[in-house]
Structures are given as C-alpha cells and as structure tokens.
Simulated assay, not measured.
Amino acid sequence: MIGFPYTKLMNSNNDVDMAAALVMCSVERAEALGIARDKWIFLHAGTDCHEHNFVSHRHTFTDTPAIRIGGRRVLDLAEKSIDEIENIDLYSCFPSAVQLGAESLGVSLDRQLTCTGGLSFAGGPFNNYVMHAIATTMTRLRERPQETGLIWANGGYATKHAFGVYATTPHVHGFQHESPQNEVDELPRRAVATAIEAQGQATVEAYSVMHDRNGSVEKVRASVLLADGRRAWATSDDTQLGQEMCENEWVGKAVTLDATGDILV
C-alpha cells in the first residue's frame, strides 16, 4: 500500500525508458513523399479545456466537468456518439482518472478503455504517455480502417484535458478544433477556509491514508467540508485513526479539527 486505497501496482511509474514518434504533414506532402495511402490517419476533431486550476476550488472531487464538456464537444465536432467510437484510450495515471474520465464521457467500465495498455508501465507521468496512445491507436486504425478512435490526454491533478478523434478517412468538414473553456469557467467554485477558520466541526469529503515503505500507516490526509460549504484540508498522524479509515468508510463522517488542521475525531 502507498496511499490508501492504492497499492504500488495501481500507481503509475515515471522511471520508464520508452519512446514514441509521430509524423504530421499535409496530404500533398504525404503524396509527394510516396507514403502509402493505407498508412494515413486523419484527425477529425480536437478540443482542449481545463478544470478550475486549484484543486481546492473544485466544487466536488467526484466529477470532472471539463472532461464532460470537452469530450461532448469533440464528439459533436466529429459528428459521432461515444457508442460509435470503437477504439478509446483514456489517460490512466491512477484508477480514479480512468473512473472519472469514463463517467464523464459516458463510457461503461465494462468496455475497452485503452489501446495502449494503461499507464502503469507505458510511459509514466510526464514521460509522454499520450504520444504512445496516439501511435498505438493509429496502428489499430490502420488494421481496422472502418473504425474510429478517441484519445483523452490529461495533465496535472486531472486538471488539463485534450481530446482527439481519429480515422483513416478525412472528415467531410475537415479538421475542427474548439476550446470550450468559457463554459467550464462559469461552473461553481468552492471557497477555501484556513485551518484557523475551519477549527471545530466538519464533514469528511475525501481522504487518503499514506503508508511508509514497510506498509505501515503513516499519515491521514483529508479534505473536509464546513457547514457553510467551504472546503478545508486536514491531516492526522494518529496511526490508529489511519488504520480505522482503511478498514471502514469515513466519507460523510463528522470530525473535529483543531486550529492547525489536525483531526481530533
């Protein structure tokens, strides 16, 4: 266990020695270079947008509206529904990213979610995973020229999102791109309370229990909501509390915080 509920295998690895490359050019240039037509892949549509930059300001941690908005728009531009996309690659640094991405895009967790194989040992964070996803999806589309691919790229704390729809034939309207950021920016934001302001009663919104290298409980990190709707951050070095939070669900439970943000229970 590293940070409950994730074991080491459920976390991405950034020390991975891999490489991928793409060649982008116009149709005219591809023809001039003699690149075989069955190697061509066309980008039908692309969108990009981001969540509220500071995690503390996001209205909830159980929803990623920028994925929903950006994903919906790229499908609209490509004139496709999510059910018409045969090949999907969701960014997968942690299980929560896959779960949030799938839910926001309307994708069932029971269907194919990656062409690349997942992030654990395929590029690692900051190591160009999405380039691998594009290259792998292109290879699959060459093998299945009647199909379409959708790739979701992510950066930060599920913060920045980019989407692309790919196929072996050009879209009737050519490549289209939009950034629906204004729609995301209009969404509600949480106000944040300082530790002193949050002293007293609060409700656990989300948490993780950090473990040391020997697998022993080390520290609790939690986000809590106050009665007025503001969010605050809390911690605890109480290993008994940490073990209890690993064994039982604490989301929604009432806790008491001191003036430094420590959980007193």
Rank of each mutant, 00 (worst) to 15 (best):
S108G: 08
L105N: 01
A30G: 10
A191V: 10
G252M: 02
W40Q: 04
W233R: 04
G174D: 09
A133G: 04
D238P: 02
A21P: 03
Q99F: 09
A167N: 02
A21F: 08
G3I: 13
S26N: 12
Q240L: 11
F175P: 04
I69S: 00
I69T: 12
M10F: 05
N53D: 03
L109V: 01
V251Y: 02
T7M: 13
T62M: 13
G34I: 03
H50T: 10
A254S: 13
R230K: 13
A133D: 09
C246T: 14
P170W: 10
A32D: 11
T168A: 09
A202Y: 10
I196D: 11
Q146C: 09
F61T: 12
T136F: 03
H57M: 13
M18V: 04
D228W: 14
A30T: 05
E244C: 08
R111W: 06
P180L: 06
S104I: 00
S179G: 06
G229C: 05
I35S: 05
S26G: 15
Q181M: 02
D237I: 14
G117N: 05
G70E: 00
D238K: 09
L100P: 00
L264H: 01
A97H: 03
N182D: 14
N53F: 15
D48Q: 12
M1R: 10
Q99K: 06
H52G: 04
D238N: 15
A153H: 03
A232H: 07
D185L: 07
C93R: 00
G106D: 04
A193F: 01
L226N: 10
H161A: 01
R73H: 14
T60Y: 05
I69R: 01
M131N: 04
E183G: 07
R29Q: 11
L75K: 01
V209Q: 11
T137I: 07
A227G: 06
P5E: 11
Q201H: 13
D83A: 07
W152I: 12
F121V: 08
A32K: 15
V55S: 07
N182E: 12
L241T: 06
E244H: 14
N182Y: 07
P188D: 09
V265A: 11
E103P: 00
E103G: 02
Q176L: 10
G70V: 04
L109T: 01
A21D: 04
L9H: 08
K160Q: 13
I67T: 14
P95K: 02
T168E: 07
A158N: 06
A202F: 09
A153L: 00
R190C: 10
S26L: 12
V265E: 09
V265Y: 11
T60S: 15
A153G: 15
V27D: 14
R72S: 13
T64K: 09
V98W: 02
G156T: 02
V165C: 09
F175I: 12
L113H: 07
E197V: 00
D15L: 12
L75T: 02
M24C: 11
I134L: 12
T139V: 03
G123M: 05
V224E: 01
T239K: 13
G71R: 04
N248K: 14
A122M: 13
G229M: 12
G3T: 12
T137C: 12
L90K: 03
G46Q: 08
N87T: 08
R231L: 07
